[in-house]
């Protein structure tokens, strides 16, 4: 058996007559982008909430966009990513007074997903930037947890699991903070989304994190990094992803000599019985002259060769143990 549920997270930049742009530049670029993902064999598609109106405009509705995906061999749209990376006076997960607005925003996003085959994950960044949130206390985490408990109950009514994707620069980033957050959230309502690079940069072992929270894990971003944040870059205002003085590029595709042990994670996933989607994400792949297209192909090559072998080994070990 080979893992077939590989999805792609909708980060991409391509050359257009108006310079490098996301493929949502226009319908023709969007079609080409989907075809490229299709050629590599991706069958799931995750996207951001803010792209949904654009895709609806191009394809006559979000379900129309999903049908185009399906015409090209995809199963469906698998996840919607929603986030408030910058805290504002309107929306800040650590400020209880803004929660009604955030919940209303989530309701809007859920409405845009009506008619889809079955989005599984409503992926959220639980907090805004660390520097806007600090000091991060247990009480801060409790406020944030209360928000996502509310959203979790809401999204379940629409068949989607609210699943939390942590950034190395977010307010919940250490293992202790992660544990506190999951203690304060309802395991029936709030789930774990494992971004391998983000946890590694924050000094958290993603394999151990998955091992400990596999019962709440509903998805992954498979991406790599070559750096652990050793200079408190996570506190850099306004943004450590692009402005950290010591590290100009944090994220890399799999198989390029990064720190994440993907074969070990793959084996752990197989051993756990997890049967959900595995998602490839590239973020800022163009830094240093890189190309999203090539990064995606190289990552899929790694899946088809290295991870397929790890998966086969894990399945053989399971069989032997029976």
């Amino acid at each position: 058996m080979v893992w077939t549920k590989w999805s792609y997270m909708d980060h991409w930049v391509t050359e257009t007559p108006q310079g490098p742009q996301p493929p949502s530049f226009n319908r023709a670029y969007m079609d080409r982008y989907v075809k490229q993902l299709s050629a590599l064999g991706f069958t799931g598609f995750d996207t951001f909430f803010f792209y949904l109106p654009l895709y609806a405009g191009m394809y006559g509705g979000v379900p129309g966009f999903e049908r185009f995906l399906q015409d090209n061999g995809f199963d469906k749209i698998t996840g919607i990513f929603s986030a408030y990376p910058s805290a504002t006076r309107y929306t800040a997960p650590h400020v209880r007074e803004t929660h009604d607005r955030i919940v209303a925003d989530c309701e809007n996003t859920l409405r845009m997903c009506e008619g889809l085959t079955g989005v599984e994950n409503f992926i959220v960044m639980p907090t805004s930037t660390h520097h806007q949130t600090e000091p991060v206390t247990d009480d801060t985490i409790k406020v944030v947890a209360d928000l996502w408990n509310r959203v979790g109950a809401l999204t379940l009514q629409h068949g989607m699991k609210t699943t939390c994707h942590f950034e190395f620069w977010g307010a919940i980033r250490t293992r202790e903070q992660l544990d506190t957050f999951f203690r304060h959230t309802d395991p029936e309502l709030v789930f774990f989304f494992c971004d391998t690079a983000q946890h590694t940069i924050a000094g958290v072992d993603p394999v151990q994190m998955f091992r400990d929270y596999s019962d709440r894990c509903t998805g992954f971003h498979f991406k790599d990094t070559k750096n652990v944040d050793e200079h408190e870059a996570y506190r850099t205002p306004p943004d450590p992803e692009l402005m950290a003085p010591q590290v100009t590029r944090w994220f890399y595709e799999m198989g390029e000599g990064g720190l994440v042990d993907f074969p070990a994670l793959m084996k752990e996933i197989v051993a756990s019985g997890y049967d959900g989607w595995l998602t490839v994400e590239h973020d800022k792949a163009e830094l240093g002259g890189g190309s999203y297209a090539e990064a995606t192909a190289v990552a899929k090559w790694y899946i088809d060769n290295v991870l397929a072998e790890a998966e086969a080994e894990a399945r053989a070990e399971l069989e032997t143990a029976r």
């Binding site: 391509t14 050359e15 090539e294």
Partner: peptide
Amino acid sequence: NPAELAMLNSW
């Protein structure tokens, strides 16, 4: 972009 074109040809 060669990777884009290779994928489109494969598609």
